[in-house]
Protein backbone atom coordinates (compact mmCIF):
# COMPACT_ATOMS: atom_id res chain seq x y z
CA UNK A 1 0.00 0.00 0.00
CA UNK A 2 1.31 3.39 -0.87
CA UNK A 3 0.47 6.93 0.04
CA UNK A 4 -2.54 8.57 -1.54
CA UNK A 5 -1.92 11.30 -4.06
CA UNK A 6 -4.09 14.05 -5.45
CA UNK A 7 -5.35 13.58 -9.01
CA UNK A 8 -7.49 15.57 -11.39
CA UNK A 9 -9.02 14.05 -14.51
CA UNK A 10 -11.80 15.08 -16.85
CA UNK A 11 -14.32 12.37 -17.62
CA UNK A 12 -17.04 12.95 -20.20
CA UNK A 13 -16.59 16.69 -19.82
CA UNK A 14 -16.77 16.69 -16.04
CA UNK A 15 -13.75 17.52 -13.92
CA UNK A 16 -13.07 15.03 -11.12
CA UNK A 17 -10.65 15.56 -8.24
CA UNK A 18 -9.80 12.91 -5.67
CA UNK A 19 -7.13 11.25 -3.58
CA UNK A 20 -6.01 7.80 -4.67
CA UNK A 21 -3.11 5.43 -4.46
CA UNK A 22 -0.99 5.85 -7.60
CA UNK A 23 -1.23 2.09 -8.24
CA UNK A 24 -5.00 2.26 -8.63
CA UNK A 25 -5.84 1.14 -12.14
CA UNK A 26 -7.78 3.66 -14.16
CA UNK A 27 -10.58 1.18 -14.86
CA UNK A 28 -11.27 0.98 -11.11
CA UNK A 29 -11.10 4.73 -10.77
CA UNK A 30 -13.81 4.98 -13.39
CA UNK A 31 -15.95 2.08 -12.29
CA UNK A 32 -15.67 2.16 -8.53
CA UNK A 33 -14.66 5.68 -7.60
CA UNK A 34 -16.68 7.57 -10.20
CA UNK A 35 -19.46 4.98 -10.79
CA UNK A 36 -18.90 5.01 -14.53
CA UNK A 37 -19.62 1.34 -15.16
CA UNK A 38 -19.94 1.35 -18.95
CA UNK A 39 -16.32 0.26 -19.51
CA UNK A 40 -15.91 -3.35 -18.35
CA UNK A 41 -13.13 -5.62 -17.17
CA UNK A 42 -12.44 -8.76 -19.18
CA UNK A 43 -8.77 -9.62 -18.81
CA UNK A 44 -6.69 -6.94 -17.05
CA UNK A 45 -3.89 -7.65 -19.54
CA UNK A 46 -4.86 -5.33 -22.44
CA UNK A 47 -6.06 -8.19 -24.63
CA UNK A 48 -9.83 -7.98 -24.66
CA UNK A 49 -10.62 -4.28 -24.98
CA UNK A 50 -13.80 -4.36 -22.84
CA UNK A 51 -12.32 -1.44 -20.88
CA UNK A 52 -11.55 0.74 -23.92
CA UNK A 53 -11.87 4.48 -23.34
CA UNK A 54 -10.62 7.48 -25.25
CA UNK A 55 -7.84 9.47 -23.61
CA UNK A 56 -6.68 12.71 -25.21
CA UNK A 57 -7.93 11.50 -28.56
CA UNK A 58 -6.49 7.98 -28.45
CA UNK A 59 -8.09 4.59 -27.77
CA UNK A 60 -6.70 3.30 -24.48
CA UNK A 61 -7.33 0.15 -22.46
CA UNK A 62 -8.10 1.46 -19.01
CA UNK A 63 -7.33 -1.84 -17.27
CA UNK A 64 -3.58 -1.45 -17.69
CA UNK A 65 -3.15 2.23 -16.99
CA UNK A 66 -2.48 3.56 -13.51
CA UNK A 67 -4.58 6.47 -12.36
CA UNK A 68 -1.29 8.32 -11.93
CA UNK A 69 -0.70 8.04 -15.67
CA UNK A 70 -4.14 9.51 -16.37
CA UNK A 71 -3.61 12.61 -14.20
CA UNK A 72 -4.64 15.76 -16.02
CA UNK A 73 -6.04 13.85 -18.99
CA UNK A 74 -9.34 14.16 -20.81
CA UNK A 75 -11.23 10.86 -20.86
CA UNK A 76 -14.31 9.82 -22.80
CA UNK A 77 -16.22 6.64 -22.01
CA UNK A 78 -19.31 5.12 -23.62
CA UNK A 79 -21.42 7.29 -21.31
CA UNK A 80 -19.96 10.37 -22.99
CA UNK A 81 -20.57 9.14 -26.52
CA UNK A 82 -24.34 9.30 -26.56
CA UNK A 83 -27.39 8.85 -24.37
CA UNK A 84 -31.14 8.33 -24.77
CA UNK A 85 -31.67 11.75 -26.34
CA UNK A 86 -28.56 11.95 -28.52
CA UNK A 87 -27.59 8.45 -29.61
CA UNK A 88 -24.40 8.22 -31.60
CA UNK A 89 -24.87 6.70 -35.09
CA UNK A 90 -22.75 3.75 -33.92
CA UNK A 91 -25.08 3.08 -30.99
CA UNK A 92 -28.02 3.07 -33.38
CA UNK A 93 -26.23 0.94 -35.96
CA UNK A 94 -25.19 -1.72 -33.43
CA UNK A 95 -28.85 -2.21 -32.52
CA UNK A 96 -30.07 -2.04 -36.11
CA UNK A 97 -27.56 -4.59 -37.40
CA UNK A 98 -27.45 -6.87 -34.34
CA UNK A 99 -23.86 -5.98 -33.55
CA UNK A 100 -24.10 -7.23 -29.98
CA UNK A 101 -25.42 -10.08 -27.92
CA UNK A 102 -24.41 -10.24 -24.25
CA UNK A 103 -23.39 -6.60 -24.40
CA UNK A 104 -20.26 -6.97 -22.31
CA UNK A 105 -17.79 -5.98 -25.04
CA UNK A 106 -20.16 -3.40 -26.53
CA UNK A 107 -19.16 -0.22 -24.66
CA UNK A 108 -15.47 -0.80 -25.43
CA UNK A 109 -16.30 -1.87 -28.96
CA UNK A 110 -18.34 1.25 -29.71
CA UNK A 111 -15.84 3.52 -27.97
CA UNK A 112 -13.05 2.07 -30.11
CA UNK A 113 -15.19 2.36 -33.24
CA UNK A 114 -15.77 6.08 -32.67
CA UNK A 115 -12.01 6.60 -32.82
CA UNK A 116 -11.59 4.27 -35.78
CA UNK A 117 -14.10 6.33 -37.76
CA UNK A 118 -12.37 9.54 -36.77
CA UNK A 119 -9.04 8.13 -37.93
CA UNK A 120 -10.55 6.66 -41.08
CA UNK A 121 -14.06 7.92 -41.92
CA UNK A 122 -14.48 5.59 -44.91
CA UNK A 123 -12.92 2.31 -43.88
CA UNK A 124 -13.05 -0.85 -45.97
CA UNK A 125 -14.20 -4.06 -44.32
CA UNK A 126 -10.59 -5.15 -44.03
CA UNK A 127 -9.60 -1.88 -42.37
CA UNK A 128 -12.44 -2.26 -39.87
CA UNK A 129 -11.40 -5.83 -39.06
CA UNK A 130 -7.82 -4.69 -38.54
CA UNK A 131 -8.76 -1.53 -36.66
CA UNK A 132 -11.07 -3.40 -34.29
CA UNK A 133 -8.73 -6.34 -33.66
CA UNK A 134 -7.89 -5.07 -30.18
CA UNK A 135 -11.46 -5.62 -29.02
CA UNK A 136 -12.64 -9.17 -28.44
CA UNK A 137 -16.21 -10.37 -28.72
CA UNK A 138 -17.22 -13.90 -27.78
CA UNK A 139 -20.82 -13.79 -29.01
CA UNK A 140 -21.19 -12.25 -32.45
CA UNK A 141 -18.34 -13.63 -34.54
CA UNK A 142 -17.75 -9.96 -35.50
CA UNK A 143 -19.68 -10.18 -38.79
CA UNK A 144 -22.49 -7.94 -37.56
CA UNK A 145 -20.10 -5.66 -35.70
CA UNK A 146 -18.32 -4.99 -38.99
CA UNK A 147 -21.69 -4.46 -40.64
CA UNK A 148 -22.75 -2.03 -37.90
CA UNK A 149 -19.59 0.04 -38.22
CA UNK A 150 -19.91 0.13 -42.02
CA UNK A 151 -23.51 1.31 -41.68
CA UNK A 152 -22.64 3.97 -39.09
CA UNK A 153 -19.79 5.23 -41.28
CA UNK A 154 -22.15 5.53 -44.23
CA UNK A 155 -24.69 7.41 -42.14
CA UNK A 156 -22.08 9.75 -40.68
CA UNK A 157 -20.59 10.42 -44.11
CA UNK A 158 -24.01 11.12 -45.61
CA UNK A 159 -24.82 13.53 -42.78
CA UNK A 160 -21.48 15.25 -43.23
CA UNK A 161 -21.96 15.62 -46.99
CA UNK A 162 -25.46 17.02 -46.43
CA UNK A 163 -24.08 19.81 -44.24
CA UNK A 164 -21.13 20.65 -46.52
Amino acid sequence: MSKKQHYKITVNGKEEEFLAEPRELLIYTLRERLNITGPHIGCETSHCGACTVTIDGKSVKACTMFVAQADGKDITTIEGIGGPDDLHPLQKAFKEHHGLQCGYCTPGMITRATKLLEENPKPTEEEIRFGMAGNLCRCTGYQNIVKSIMAAAAEMNAAKEATE
Binding site: E79, G83, Q91, G103
Partner: peptide, 13 residues
Amino acid sequence: DARFTQGKGNYVD
Protein backbone atom coordinates in the same frame (compact mmCIF):
# COMPACT_ATOMS: atom_id res chain seq x y z
CA ASP B 1 -29.65 -3.24 -26.90
CA ALA B 2 -30.61 0.23 -25.69
CA ARG B 3 -28.98 -0.30 -22.32
CA PHE B 4 -26.00 -2.25 -23.59
CA THR B 5 -25.08 0.25 -26.29
CA GLN B 6 -25.26 3.11 -23.81
CA GLY B 7 -23.13 1.47 -21.14
CA LYS B 8 -26.12 0.92 -18.89
CA GLY B 9 -26.05 -2.83 -18.59
CA ASN B 10 -26.08 -4.11 -15.04
CA TYR B 11 -23.54 -6.90 -14.65
CA VAL B 12 -22.56 -8.36 -11.29
CA ASP B 13 -19.40 -6.30 -11.00
